[in-house]
Design a protein around this nucleic acid. Structure first.
Lengths: 248, 248
DNA sequence: CGCGCGGTTGATCAACCTCAACCCGCGTGG
DNA sequence: CCACGCGGGTTGAGGTTGATCAACCGCGCG
């Protein structure tokens, strides 16, 4: 789902291991709903998310917005652009990011060829993710999108604690990400709840109760009765969580 | 529109300049509607399109397809994957591709740091393109999508010859790309023709007559009367042709 | 000739959007 | 303290867009 992930170990781990590392200095804290950068800002930095959640979005001429991805710790931002940022990046929770001067990208590549390759893989994964999301947006129904989305966020956040997880973004953010209206998102969420598939412990906290049914729905099944879900041949086009998994 | 482009000069130009270059040998011709590679094929090669058009697509569990991009000469394919191809790649016209062994990617990076950076930029552009397409698919109406698509292909193909250009893909391909049904594509095409905005000189050849109106439509305007189109503040989210332009 | 493929066209229908009302929690200020 | 407004969310009624199903056309080819 273009829920970004994929660690650049050399950037995050290294820095934390050596507190005196000069890269360790460029940390920035951003409040929830503040921007890390805006569309068409000069791209003098790329960023690595250290903690929190951000959304990446684009604004079309008519003012419509499309959220092109969410990202949390470990994700790297700004690689899709050249001279100016093509996406806007807004914090949806309090966030800390590590800033990497864009002009030092070249140096980094020179210094550490392995790192360059890692970067290349990372963008590749993001690309794969974006394409997966494209497939989801283009072909799935509202219900499928919601199911896929919930599953992806759940898997991403952790999942192991009994299916409970944070859902820090607003309804409108989800809507803009999935290509729906926020009313539709709201409706589907309550519908899933009514069917007993999920529980909303609070507005921004969710628990998956019937994972199997959600999965079947995500794959295009009708809302049938409960059954042991047939393992998917391919593990569901998890929007794109694919590359997030790959990183672990 | 994820209509891929973006030349890797060092790969294409170099090879053509030195006929004895060993990379020059790995050329492959593919017939129309044959595959360059399939989904989940081992990714032992990446490819550079030398001539012709291909489409990149994904198949979802329920058999639905999403075309995630079209690509013509100069595009590079396979960077989004790691060990196996995530997309299928089918020729829509006769195509020649240059095959680059995947394991030589690392060597290439070592040998030519500039090239590595170029590759990084290229994937970055593709990523930006995919995100742009995401925005288009997610927010635009059928009519807007068609308009944007036609403009993008036109710009891509050349455009200078009086707005006439090839539209080599089938209706179904466009539909799968735009997240529509092929009937809808067909209808909108004839509708544009009826309005006098385009002319179909043949099934696979098109001419844009009222570019300004098409552009206004692509940006969300209603099908109004003719007017001199107000230059777009931003040059239309040309699906993603953005990065194709950037390459020139 | 008959068939199949790709495309067009028409009628119908449902999914989703739109608009609007309403709820709830919260912060502010009278 | 309460009234008020506001932001975010939910819910409902009705309308449109685009999907669906089906017929049909034209063409190339065995």
């Amino acid at each position: 789902m273009c829920i970004a992930g994929g660690r650049i170990d050399a950037l995050t781990a290294q820095a934390s291991r050596r507190p005196d590392d000069r890269r360790g200095a460029h940390l920035r804290k951003v409040l929830a709903h503040d921007h890390v950068f805006y569309e068409s800002d000069d791209r003098d930095c790329i960023f690595v998310v250290e903690s929190g959640w951000v959304k990446l979005y684009r604004t079309l001429i008519d003012g419509q917005r499309q959220v092109v991805g969410f990202a949390n710790a470990g994700s790297i931002l700004g690689l899709e652009s050249e001279d100016i940022h093509l996406n806007g990046c807004e914090a949806i929770t309090p966030v800390t990011v590590r800033c990497i001067p864009a002009n030092s990208l070249a140096d980094i590549c020179l210094v550490d060829i392995k790192l360059a390759q890692q970067l290349l893989r990372q963008v590749g994964r993001q690309l794969g993710a974006a394409q997966a999301q494209l497939a989801a947006i283009g072909t799935q129904s509202a219900e499928q999108k919601m199911a896929t989305f919930l599953l992806s966020v759940a898997d991403l956040c952790d999942a192991t604690q009994g299916g409970a997880f944070d859902l820090p973004m607003r309804r409108g953010d989800m809507a803009e990400f999935l290509g729906l209206r926020l009313e539709t998102v709201s409706r589907k969420m309550t519908e899933f709840q009514r069917r007993g598939w999920i529980e909303m412990t609070s507005l921004y906290h969710c628990r998956i109760v019937r994972r199997a049914l959600l999965q079947k729905m995500a794959q295009g099944g009708e809302p049938e009765e409960e059954r042991s879900a047939p393992r998917a041949v391919r593990p569901t086009p998890q929007m794109d969580l694919g590359w997030k998994i790959a990183q672990c």
